[in-house]
Design a protein around this nucleic acid. Structure first.
Lengths: 107, 107
DNA sequence: CTCGTACCTAACCACTTGGTTATCTAACCT
DNA sequence: AGGTTAGATAACCAAGTGGTTAGGTACGAG
């Protein structure tokens, strides 16, 4: 799977987005990350593996803890991709686009 | 499923992103959209339904054609969401962030 | 009216996903 | 050495996904 698809897929889950949001406040252990959620440890482990494979987090090793840290670089690609559609969600740009199309047709 | 999750899930497929890219050039029929891909019609229909449920396209009715049109408004939410992480992928911001954390700790 | 075209639905298949419980390893603390 | 804690792995399950083929509907053309 390509990088962008993996990133989008990883972000398509509210739990994983909440984990990323938590990690903006700094590194955290698996236990800390799991506390806000009413799901089991293994479920969190799976989410973390998805995030790790998408390159959105990195994991260290400190005694019996495996601290997670945010790596937002894949999100840059997401932002760039979305920005390419800005003129299509901005109404004024959309109207300008229509106008340009008309002008091209009646040229 | 929440709007943002639905949007990310819809975008997590290269075929669907290619369809959106094609629709930036203007409306298209299902047939036209399916042409670049080596997959069956029903497969395209399923992709279009995913995009429609995510609010990324709208579909009309013209004789035997069902023209698809891009609706990029959900992408605005994606762009806004990603922008919140800008300071984490921009190295200079990251260093600034570290500095601020240090300052807070040694306060 | 009949034929071809555009598109959808239904049924099916292999694979993935998000969750579970149970079991294991590794490290720390008495 | 024994017990507790952090975490991963394995095996399982229900539901979803991306694809298929077969068959149905709706419309335009001859």
């Amino acid at each position: 799977m390509d990088q962008l698809s993996a990133t989008f897929a990883a972000l398509a889950d509210p739990t994983r987005r909440a984990i990323l949001a938590r990690l903006t406040e700094g590194p955290a252990t698996v236990k800390e990350l799991s506390e806000p959620f009413a799901i089991s440890g293994p479920a969190i482990s799976k989410h973390l593996r998805v995030l790790e494979k998408a390159g959105l987090i990195t994991r260290g090793r400190e005694a019996q803890w495996r601290p997670c840290q945010l790596d937002a670089t894949p999100l840059k690609e997401v932002a760039v991709w979305a920005e390419n559609y800005r003129r299509f969600w901005d109404a004024s740009y959309a109207r300008l686009d229509e106008l340009l199309t008309e002008m091209k047709e009646t040229d």
